[in-house]
Design a protein around this nucleic acid. Structure first.
Length: 293
DNA sequence: AAGCGAACCTGGCTGC
DNA sequence: TGCAGCCAGGTTCGCT
């Protein structure tokens, strides 16, 4: 589920229930996710008021009234379900809410409003951490993050600097969170197809003062921004599960042009080729060999 | 230094 | 029906 648009969709779903509310209780149904929960996790959260809920790349960061920040990451299969006070109070609601699975509810937050937020994660690649808000930018998992692709500084010049001298394939460079933070496998494939760039091309071929390279990186920066924006507007992509906090599905997956479309005709106007799947650094890449060069 | 594969987990789908 | 094998939106670690 979670690349940048999906995490942003989750943030928007969680914010009404969490921002301004105080943690009234924290239930942990196991000792760890990808990592152990922080020491005294429940005690440090209980009574804290959520001042803000922000997204940094694929991370959610809740700023707390205690001087700490709660860092959340959804991994591959993490999802949140929000229940309003009314829903949470309804007998049986906890076990029958729409869209939730019977197993893998690992964390249940309750708030002073009566709202309930449940974290479910079958594969447990997600994690939760607490860190001093003052030191957030030096937190190991935040400090190394690259540029935000929807931020004001993301443009052709930024790509020029990031890709200079890089022999690594363009696909791998775009997935590298230390360079650009928030892209994942789906939106990299989609942005490259929209730009007509081959995923196997060396990243460094897009840098330099030449006009052709500049045109390409301008197109790529624009396509990345566009595809992410369109996906957020669609509520993200729901491939095999429920993406949103109310149990409904995002629908951007219906707009995929190449992702998971191996063997389908290329949707580019006039292109008669067929979408192919290859493996790059262990991940599937979907692209059109005809119009991506 | 960079780049690759494996590992971390579970579940769903495909094919025999 | 059963079971083996492969695949999955991410990140980290360890070995060339």
């Amino acid at each position: 589920m979670p690349e940048l648009p999906e995490v942003e969709t989750v943030r928007r779903g969680l914010a009404p229930a969490m921002v301004g509310a105080r943690f009234a209780g924290v239930r942990l149904n196991r000792p760890n996710l990808r990592f152990p929960f922080p020491e005294r996790f429940a005690e440090r959260l209980t009574g804290a008021r959520v001042e803000a809920l922000d997204r940094r790349a694929k991370f959610l960061v809740a700023t707390l009234s205690t001087g700490e920040s709660l860092i959340l990451h959804l991994g591959m299969s993490g999802r949140f379900l929000v229940e309003t006070a009314e829903e949470a109070a309804r007998p049986g609601a906890f076990h029958h809410a729409a869209g939730r699975l019977p197993a893998h509810d690992h964390v249940v937050f309750t708030f002073d409003s009566g709202a309930r937020v449940t974290y479910n994660d079958a594969r447990r690649f997600g994690f939760m951490q607490l860190t001093a808000t003052a030191g957030l930018e030096t937190h190991p998992q935040i400090a190394g993050l690259g540029i935000e692709p929807l931020g004001n500084h993301f443009n052709a010049d930024a790509l020029d600097a990031l890709f200079a001298g890089k022999a690594t394939p363009l696909k791998a460079a775009l997935l590298d969170q230390k360079l650009i933070a928030g892209l994942g496998n789906i939106y990299v494939c989609e942005a490259l197809h929209r730009t007509g760039l081959a995923p196997t091309r060396g990243a460094g071929t897009l840098s330099g003062a030449g006009k052709a390279a500049r045109t390409k990186r301008e197109a790529l920066a624009g396509a990345i921004r566009t595809v992410l924006t369109e996906a957020i507007a669609a509520g993200g992509s729901s491939i095999s599960d429920h993406a949103r906090t109310d149990g409904t599905l995002g629908y951007f997956q219906h707009s995929f042009r190449v992702y998971d479309r191996e063997g389908a005709p290329c949707p580019a106007p006039g292109c008669r080729h067929v979408i192919r799947r290859i493996v790059q650094s262990g991940r599937s890449t979907f692209f059109c060999p005809g119009c991506q060069k």
